[in-house]
Design a protein around this nucleic acid. Structure first.
Length: 604
DNA sequence: GACGGAATCT
DNA sequence: AGATTCCGTC
């Protein structure tokens, strides 16, 4: 086996499930697919095609064979493999490109966010839309390795703090390891990889190309992409139109600046809900095509993000994050000391405004937050039920579910199974998803494939401090939430904490008068509940709306045009500016939040 | 070919 | 949980 560096293909350690989970350390199919996709050797077998993240399996049986080899399942065949692939539909990791044989498409959003929650904060929708729609730049598209469990698990959403924390922990490990599970039998791949490893840098390349066109934020790129885009393809690599890249287009011009103080990925220029940029599957907070796991990059990223948080009053979530943010370790102790990283690899350590802690024993960090803000993504099992028309959780909630932490309120997924599906299915999701954010999404949609539609900076400036929120929530949304214009999932928490959004009219998030006097934790909780309530109401309404709509068969787009959907979410999340008092409270809250996060380590 | 349920394995 | 197998349906 090659060391991670050798293979060039390296998924960070944490890309794998935790040891505890079954199947841990086993590569997951989607990772494997990505792996193949990024290797030229397999271009005849599987390759990127069309839209972002869209790939075609040119030789199904071969792919199956490879997969079988990797998993030691000689009996593997395309039929089985495709079944596995179909399971991803539900998880929204993949979806089928209709009408095209053996063609599937990754939902980058989901994957990325989940994997890199830290990024999400601002990145998501927060990224300026103005950014060039140019997709990527990397020569090879690399999917961020993720923890499948996180990504996939319907129960755990991006929004879930738990995820974040877990991710953070994982990051802490930070090490990059090769993708191969220890057992990997298939040296084929690895070998191939090694050979192909240009320049070797495994990890760094990993994310090249990941960026969503709309996401492309200059600063991001600069920051993470490094000058000229760090992950520049090693010599010999084709930069433009790299077949390996999911993005047809060429790499971004890489301005060399590092993260400018300006905007960080975290900072969102636009409100989450309205971001012009679409949450298409391809979008990834990963930023940059050049973003890599290179420690330096990561640091930079984090730093930038961190700054943005402070500068922009990011959502409390961000804070949660930060205290525990762990910077990925450059190299795992055991890891190859020098992974061949790309040139930028040696970038000097960034000054961290905040100390990013390195935790090797990442596990030490219990997630700061025990709250689960998000409801679990739904699965597709809805069907069984009697359609749930009964439960309040009517399917229509789907949209809303995301919006509020409601469901999840009690950490355990309360509504574990809220099925949004009726309305949304993968496909419908997509459609809807479009609505929410903007037309763009539609364009993005797989089938449509107009990924490149220019971003509509609708309100680009509507910048909302929440950007983060939006980002966080949103990405996930893209498929889930977007189905319906739902209130921003994060809204409950974030707004309240920050006090950014207190709704003037409605349930005042902050209990009148009481807030300040209440202990932080209580306050926090209280607020949370209130928000949830509010959200719940909102959801209910929405659900009803949806039903109606569904019956009428109203076009989702219309809604978006009207601004209903998005607006709605905005209203929830952004609500009017908080009264002064609240504001004060909010700042306090912010501080508190930070504290809380710390406290929570032990206490919560 | 694609989908997805169900049982089963790991 | 994430496949793997098998299978019926479209």
């Amino acid at each position: 086996m090659k060391t991670p560096g050798d293979t060039g293909f390296a998924f960070p350690d944490w890309a794998y499930k935790p040891e505890s989970s079954p199947g841990s350390r086993q590569i997951q199919l989607w990772c494997f697919i990505l792996e193949l996709l990024r290797k030229e050797e397999y271009h005849e077998v599987i390759a990127w095609q069309g839209d972002y993240g869209e790939f075609v399996i040119k030789d199904p049986e071969e792919v199956a064979r490879l997969w079988g080899a990797r998993k030691c399942k000689p009996q593997m065949n395309y039929d089985k493999l495709s079944r596995a692939l179909r399971y991803y539909y539900n998880k929204r990791i993949l979806h089928k490109t209709k009408g095209k044989r053996f063609t599937y498409k990754f939902n980058f959003n989901k994957l990325v966010l989940v994997n890199y929650p830290f990024i999400d904060m601002g990145s998501g929708r927060g990224v300026p839309q103005s950014a060039p729609p140019v997709p990527t730049g990397g020569s090879h598209f690399r999917f961020p390795p993720c923890t499948p469990s996180d990504v996939l698990s319907p129960s755990e959403d991006l929004r879930s703090p738990g995820v974040f924390s877990s991710v953070a922990r994982r990051l802490g490990r930070g090490s990059v390891s090769d993708c191969s599970d220890g057992t990997s039998t298939n040296s084929e791949l690895e070998e191939g990889v090694g050979g192909e490893d240009r320049g070797g840098a495994g990890p760094e390349r990993a994310f090249r190309g990941l960026l969503h066109p709309r996401l492309s934020h200059d600063s991001l790129f600069r920051t993470y992409g490094g000058p000229g885009g760090l992950g520049r393809p090693p010599p010999g690599h084709r930069v433009h139109g790299d077949p390996m890249s999911p993005f047809p287009v060429s790499p971004l011009p890489g301005p060399g600046g590092l993260l400018g103080p300006t905007l960080s990925p975290g900072l969102s220029m636009t409100p989450g809900s309205h971001l012009p940029y679409t949450p298409s599957p391809s979008l990834s907070p990963m930023l940059g095509s050049h973003f890599s796991f290179n420690p330096d990059d990561m640091k930079r990223y984090l730093q930038a993000h961190h700054q943005s948080v402070y500068n922009y009053h990011l959502s409390p979530r961000a804070f949660f994050h930060y205290p525990n943010i762990v910077v990925p370790q450059p190299h795992r102790p055991s890891a190859a000391p020098d992974k061949p990283m790309t040139a930028h690899h040696h970038a000097p350590p960034m000054p961290h405004s905040h100390s990013l802690h390195h935790h090797q024993g990442e596990e030490q960090h219990p997630s700061p937050f025990k709250f689960k803000l998000q409801p679990p993504p739904l699965g597709r099992k809805q069907k069984d039920g009697s359609t749930s028309s009964t439960g309040g959780s009517s399917s229509s909630l789907g949209s809303s579910y995301a919006a509020s932490g409601l469901l999840s309120n009690s950490s355990s997924s309360v509504g574990p199974k809220i099925k949004v599906e009726p309305v949304s299915d993968v496909e419908s999701d997509e459609e809807v998803e479009v609505t929410d954010i903007s037309e763009e999404d539609e364009l993005l949609d797989d089938d449509e494939g107009d990924v490149f539609t220019p971003p509509h900076p609708t309100n680009g400036t509507a910048a909302i401090t929440n950007g983060n929120l939006g980002a966080i929530v949103e990405d996930d949304l893209d498929e889930d939430v977007f189905k319906t214009p739902a209130a921003p999932p994060m809204a409950p928490l974030t707004p309240s904490l920050l006090g950014l959004k207190s709704e003037p009219g409605q349930g005042p998030p902050i209990s009148p008068g009481g807030t300040l006097c209440i202990p932080l934790k209580l306050r926090f909780k209280r607020r949370w509940s209130e928000d949830q309530k509010m959200e719940a109401d909102g959801e209910r309404d929405e659900a009803e709306d949806k039903k109606v709509r569904a019956e009428k068969q109203v076009e989702p787009a219309r809604e978006s045009e009207n601004g209903e959907g998005p607006r709605r979410s905005l209203s929830l999340s952004l609500r009017a500016p908080p009264p002064p008092a609240q504001r004060r409270a909010s700042s306090e809250l912010q501080r508190a939040t930070a504290q809380l996060s710390l406290e929570s380590h032990g206490a919560c």
